[in-house]
């Protein structure tokens, strides 16, 4: 399902460094001509830039010799890809069945409330992005919240604040 993302005017490439573009070129080079490599190229691109702005999609399209429409189609099809910039940390609240029946919805509501953003949004300071994830396969620990690569088990609205605080810039380097 297309995610209905409103095309955001991509900022000038000043947002990115020449090194990043060089890395992308190298990735495209290594994937070119290999069958079925579009998704992998886009994954790599997202890893480099943090998200897939139009500019980057267009480089991938040209590089792999695939129409831009197909690149856009793939980028919007998979929830893994993001067309808008992500925060420094990604907070994903699991909304899988087990998490849902154990209060995952209330946890998500509280996250929205605490961060002041909706699912798919990023805080103004670009610290946090909020995502909904369908299942991280840790159902026995439901409800779970994932922040970057750390999974937090048996969450409740009450437990969120101190955990998020650990990730905010002011807490780092302590």
């Amino acid at each position: 399902m297309p995610k209905g993302v409103v095309e955001k005017k991509v900022e000038q490439s000043s947002e990115f460094t020449p090194e990043q573009f060089a890395e992308l070129d190298a990735a495209i080079e290594s994937f070119r001509g290999k069958s079925g490599s579009t998704i992998r190229t886009l994954s790599k691109a997202q890893e480099i830039f943090g998200y897939l702005p139009k500019e980057v999609q267009s480089i991938v399209a040209k590089g792999l010799g695939i129409p831009m429409s197909e690149i856009y189609g793939i980028a919007t099809f998979y929830s893994f890809f993001s067309l808008v910039p992500k925060g420094k940390h990604t907070i994903s609240s699991c909304q899988g069945t087990a998490c849902y029946v154990r209060g995952g919805k209330q946890v998500m509501d509280e996250l929205k409330n605490l961060l002041g953003i909706d699912v798919g949004g990023t805080t103004a300071d670009r610290q946090f992005s909020l995502d909904s994830v369908r299942c991280v396969g840790a159902c026995a620990l439901a409800p779970v919240v994932r922040i970057d690569d750390d999974v937090y088990r048996q969450m409740s609205p009450k437990k969120l604040k101190p955990i998020i605080a650990k990730y905010s810039d002011s807490a780092e380097g302590e």
Partner: peptide
């Protein structure tokens, strides 16, 4: 792909 939310035997 184990997309069924609530199943994790494949992961394990």
């Amino acid at each position: 792909d184990e997309g069924d939310p609530g199943a994790f035997m494949d992961r394990s």
